[in-house]
Design a protein around this nucleic acid. Structure first.
Lengths: 107, 107
DNA sequence: TCTACAATTCGACATGTTTCGAATTGTAAT
DNA sequence: ATTACAATTCGAAACATGTCGAATTGTAGA
């Protein structure tokens, strides 16, 4: 029988928790380059930007931003890599695909 | 111009917060009748059940369950209606569609 | 090596969340 | 009315989260 429900429950809950804070959701939204549901806008915008770029858009302390980025990263939603003095953030496409699939199977 | 990002941010964050708790996510999963991502399983299962039905599957105090149901309800994810002594819960299809759309527009 | 810039870690505080048991409300049957 | 069942509300305790400023680490250039 085995409960197929409980297997990914904690993992998925962690992903949703990462998206449950308005600032983190905004970061996620900036990085996906997406605006309104139903629209594919800003297709030509950058899909990766450094921590400072995000900092200038968010009106929170940079230490707070750091904290949020770590949460998104630990949830597997974003990737971060250093380039010189800066650290660039981008969406982790496989996690995004996973969450998308999660919803597309529900009615 | 105008920031199209911030409009639904708080609302969507509230929805994700509702899904960020393993127990609430399990309730949501039970009510969608869905199991694993990528599969459309248990198509013939009930998509609505009463609070007691959920209670028997969750090993938490019924007062805690009540609390979680209220959160899901306030986030717009589920609907609840009394039938005699029982209260039946079901997925709110429009919110589910909204969240699904949210992800299907991101790359 | 000094300096400046980019970003993180640390400590502290206020606030919010999860959980329970006990008491309460609402509904229906005896 | 009384009883029994279904579910919620309440109050309290333990725990987690969001936020900041100050101090720290890491990187590159003068």
């Amino acid at each position: 029988m085995s409960n197929c429900r409980t297997i990914n429950l904690d993992r998925h809950a962690r992903i949703f928790k990462a998206l449950s804070n308005p600032h983190r959701l905004e970061i996620f939204t900036i990085l996906t380059g997406c605006c309104e549901p139903g629209t594919l806008c800003s297709t030509d915008k950058m899909l990766s930007c450094c921590v400072g770029d995000l900092d200038s858009q968010l009106s929170i302390a940079s230490s707070t931003l750091s904290h949020h980025l770590k949460e998104l990263n630990h949830a597997g939603l974003i990737e971060m890599q250093r380039e010189g003095k800066q650290i660039f953030c981008s969406i982790n496409p496989s996690t995004l695909a996973e969450v998308t699939a999660l919803f597309s199977t529900r009615r």
